[in-house]
């Protein structure tokens, strides 16, 4: 049996490298100042899919919703071993919150069909860890969140270890099932040189001047869908269709408190300790 795996990969600004000049005064982030990368957890999710492919037999489809630039993360998935890739891009996606995003992605998953859906535990820009469980609800699948280890796939079920606040849990779930994968699950492989050579020319039809069939024959076509093609309920997407809205954002400004400089000598430190006892910071 060959399982159908779908991996969801989001293109995100590298928030780990954020500095002051990447921030606008109104507290929004100037994404153009930050490098765009595949969301780190999603590469671990892809690696789990590739592991399933190698050990149990599967096809791996990577899906990303985003701007046309997100084609880049899909190419990255192809380098690493995905069999094909799909870009969901549409202006009407703009302003979508997690619920709307989940609705759109679930329509894409239904279109291609999946036994196992893998996504990252959370994204480093949205950071909600909500998209996975919400998609599971919309495609009516079982869910295993916080996967730290894939145990196996057998017949109509999948077994994995969840890593939790206070321990772990091994669970077996029926297919279809959605997994959210943590960075503890594996060490993602890097793209193989041969695949890199091959897929560097992979692209969407919109970005290709020549005959699309040629791309398709060479397996270099990254399919692109808009919301109409996916049968998305337009009342549930974009700013209007999103239940949550942003009221405001603020840059984190570190308050300058009054600082007392204490000399690193016994007198300096004894005086400080005395003060702290007097104001009951130390009892």
């Amino acid at each position: 049996m060959s399982y159908k795996c779908v991996v969801l990969i989001k293109q995100v600004p590298d928030t780990r490298a954020i500095t002051g000049d990447a921030m606008n005064d109104d507290g929004t982030v100037n994404r153009s100042k930050l490098a765009s990368i595949p969301n780190p957890d999603d590469l671990h999710a892809l690696e789990v899919a590739l592991e399933i492919k190698e050990k149990f037999g599967a096809t791996v489809t990577a899906i990303s919703m985003g701007l046309p630039e997100a084609t880049e993360v899909l190419r990255e998935a192809l380098y690493r071993g995905a069999d094909n890739a799909i870009l969901v891009t549409d202006r009407r996606c703009a302003g979508s919150d997690t619920l709307a995003t989940s609705h759109i992605l679930s329509c894409a998953i239904k279109k291609v069909g999946a036994d196992i859906v893998l996504c990252g535990r959370h994204s480093i820009d949205g950071e909600t860890a909500q998209v996975g469980p919400q998609i599971a609800e919309f495609i009516d699948a079982a869910q295993i969140t916080c996967v730290g280890e894939l145990k196996g796939v057998d017949g109509n079920s999948i077994t994995a270890r969840r890593v939790l606040d206070n321990g772990w849990q091994d669970v077996k779930a029926p297919l279809p099932c959605l997994l959210t994968v943590t960075d503890q699950a594996n060490e993602p492989r890097v793209g193989a040189a041969t695949r890199l050579m091959k897929y560097k020319n992979a692209t969407t039809a919109a970005n290709y001047d020549g005959d699309v069939n040629e791309l398709k024959e060479k397996n270099l076509l990254i399919e692109q869908y808009d919301l109409d093609q996916l049968g998305v309920d337009l009342s549930r997407v974009g700013f209007e269709g999103s239940p949550t809205k942003i009221n405001r954002t603020q840059k984190v400004i570190l308050e300058a408190k009054e600082v007392k400089e204490i000399s690193p000598t016994q007198e300096g430190i004894s005086a400080m300790v005395k003060e702290l006892i007097e104001d009951h910071s130390i009892n």
């Binding site: 507290g27 954002t249 984190v252």
Partner: peptide, 13 residues
């Protein structure tokens, strides 16, 4: 907090 703790967002519905 959002964006790795660099932004504080106020969300409403």
């Amino acid at each position: 907090p959002a964006f790795g703790g660099n932004v504080i967002a106020t969300i409403i519905n």
